[in-house]
């Protein structure tokens, strides 16, 4: 299947990436070329194959639930674009 401009805009919205309208056709072309490459997968019958999520089929390791990290709020918030009183600031969400 082939993606049109409207679909590319929808995907960009889902991904929360602003793309200028002028650039949408170029993205559509590139994405369709990549999807054409990916279509080769359809030639393979995988009905009896289990999906592989981890190369060594290892499951998640569990550990005891205990505090290991010190509080470094000031260090971490020093990296933020905007903070106030220990809080991260974003545009108003609720009117």
């Amino acid at each position: 299947m082939s993606l049109g401009s409207e679909e590319v805009k929808k995907i960009a919205h889902l991904a929360r990436i602003a793309i200028d309208d002028a650039n949408i056709p170029a993205y559509a072309t590139n994405l369709n070329n990549i999807l054409a490459l990916v279509e080769q997968m359809n030639a393979v019958d995988t009905s009896s194959v289990e999906p592989m999520a981890h190369p060594l089929n290892v499951s998640q390791r569990l550990r005891e639930d205990r505090v290991t990290e010190p509080n470094q709020r000031e260090l971490f918030q020093g990296l933020a674009p905007k903070t106030e009183a220990g809080l991260y600031l974003v545009p108003k969400v609720i009117e």
Binding site: M41, N42, V44, T46, V49, E50, P51, M52, A53
Partner: peptide
């Protein structure tokens, strides 16, 4: 589909 072929 990709994860299945990954196993193959």
């Amino acid at each position: 589909k990709a994860q299945k072929i990954r196993r193959l």
